[in-house]
Design a binder for these strands. Structure first.
Lengths: 108, 108
DNA sequence: GGCATGTGTAAGTCTGAACTTACATGCTTC
DNA sequence: GAAGCATGTAAGTTCAGACTTACACATGCC
């Protein structure tokens, strides 16, 4: 895992609103508008956060059609279990250095 | 652990420069100016990052006197091993809610 | 004294993320 | 066709954090 990949996750999870989003979704999948009401957050804002979380692989969204024909975008938690310690971080940063010297796909 | 405490750590670690700082210090304790040279980062900037990391408990600083009388501020890694998963996050957010209702120190 | 090396901080800029308001679209139901 | 509820996005503002330059101060050495 490169530090870039690690950062995407850490930066995504390092925000109060997004922690709340994750905690809420952890209780079960939910569509965006419903989630916005629960968290008392504007929908566009929630949208932004969800995008960020999704890019980090922390949540997964899927657009579905409800029985009464409404399009609902459901989100649920993606599987993640990250360990944050010196070892993880050193490995990630080292992976960057490796990638930089690894210009043409040759491995060390 | 409240989400606030969790956020201090996650936000601290969720930054490229600070990951580099941690990775560098992981190789052994080092004083600020030396660290700044290694990372090719201005000292005041590094200072800011170190403060942030220290507040999060990720690094520990100690001002020491070198043999030739110079004051050197050494930093080393603090012990940390954080698990980032749904469980951790839910627990942290729940801790907040508990604290809010827990106005007078009574526990649920 | 002057220069090197170190710590510590103040003040300012600048950029990107967070957040708001607003509007487009689509589908039902009355 | 108007109202209600949903998704999706565009445009603007606001603000905190990142970053720079600059300075004050101390010590050791030539």
């Amino acid at each position: 895992m490169t530090s870039e990949e690690l950062l995407v996750v850490l930066a995504a999870v390092g925000h109060a609103q997004r922690l709340r989003v994750i905690a809420e979704i952890a209780g079960g999948r939910m569509y965006v508008s419903e989630l916005a009401r629960r968290l008392k957050m504007s929908r566009p804002l929630l949208y932004m956060h969800l995008e960020r979380l999704e890019k980090a692989g922390l949540v997964v969204g899927s657009l579905e059609l409800s029985e009464d024909g409404k399009a609902l975008k459901y989100f649920e938690l993606g599987p993640f279990d990250l360990r944050v310690n010196a070892e993880t971080i050193v490995a990630a940063v080292a992976a960057d250095a490796a990638r930089h010297s690894d210009v043409k796909g040759n491995r060390t």
